Simulated assay, not measured.
Amino acid sequence: MFGPAARTPREIAPGAVHLPGWLTPEQQRSLVEACRRWAVGPVPIRHTRLPRGGVMSVRTVCLGWHWSPYRYTRTAVDAGGGRVAEFPGWMADLGRRALVDAYRDPAAGDGYTPDTALINFYDEQATLGMHQDRDERSDAPVVSLSIGDSCVFRFGNTEHRNRPWTDVELASGDLFVFGGPSRFAYHGVPRVLPGTADPATGLSRGRLNITIRVTGLDDAPGAE
């Protein structure tokens, strides 16, 4: 179902690869339809509240595991207590194919067992500050898919939120993978570019970002 012929990958940093146009419009439409279903429940999409009282401008819905600052749980501890939607097997296959195409290595997806996805929706004013994805107990790569409006994606270093960084424009259908030495690099979205979405994808405004991840957690006693 997924994974068209890849364009030429661009390495932004060691282990961090941008692959433009990886998803066809048809594949993007399928993902938009799925995201709309997940957005209404069992745990609806929401603005995440931060520990100090701030509220994130992006809206988020989770699959497999529920993310809240700064942990994963099976139930939405900060949003009504419901159990999150299951992480689908076809999305795990998608993540493995993404690694193969991004790294140009037929074995890159071997042993990659993602079990969660964070789906963020950005309206034209939403941003995401520089941060690391450190709440997982795994250093497996993160697979990021973009649909809808383009954005400026800022990819930094592993030491701090400041320069050096590289700004990359991510368009609808683009794939970005970061693993290896860049797995814990700071990154963020300082700006969405309104009016750049193609209605043919099923999303005429705003940006969907789907990040596929390995939590390294299980359901044994003591797990989150």
Rank of each mutant, 00 (worst) to 15 (best):
N120C: 06
V192Y: 00
G179F: 00
I12Q: 03
M91P: 07
A92F: 12
G64T: 07
V32F: 10
H47F: 09
V77F: 11
R29A: 14
A220I: 03
V84G: 05
R7P: 11
G82S: 02
H131F: 01
P4K: 03
R83I: 14
A197E: 09
E11T: 11
R71I: 03
H66W: 13
H66G: 14
R96D: 02
V43G: 03
A34H: 02
V17K: 00
A117T: 13
L170D: 00
W38G: 13
E159A: 12
A13P: 05
E159K: 12
M1A: 14
I212N: 11
M130A: 02
I147E: 09
M130Y: 01
P114E: 11
A39F: 04
D105M: 06
A6H: 14
T60W: 00
L208G: 08
P181A: 12
W22I: 00
L94E: 13
R96L: 10
G80S: 03
E26M: 04
E86K: 14
A107L: 15
F184W: 12
A108W: 11
L50S: 14
T196S: 15
A98I: 12
A6D: 15
D167K: 05
G148R: 00
T73H: 15
F87D: 07
P44Q: 05
P44D: 03
M56K: 09
R59C: 00
Y186R: 10
Y103A: 02
P164A: 13
L208Y: 14
T211Q: 05
L118D: 04
G89F: 05
V192W: 01
G3N: 06
G206L: 02
R10L: 14
G206E: 01
M56R: 02
V214P: 00
V55T: 15
S30E: 04
L170K: 01
I212G: 08
V214Q: 01
D149E: 07
E124Q: 06
S68T: 14
E26C: 09
G95V: 12
S172L: 02
R7Y: 04
P88L: 06
A34L: 09
T8C: 10
L193V: 05
W38F: 15
N157S: 15
G82K: 00
L175F: 09
V77A: 14
G53E: 13
H187Q: 08
H18T: 06
W38M: 08
T166S: 06
A76G: 11
D135E: 12
R207Y: 03
H47A: 07
D174Q: 01
G109C: 11
N162W: 15
N209W: 00
V32Q: 02
R154K: 13
R104W: 09
L19E: 08
G53T: 15
V168Y: 11
P9H: 06
W67Y: 14
H66M: 14
Q27L: 13
A5E: 15
V177W: 00
I12L: 12
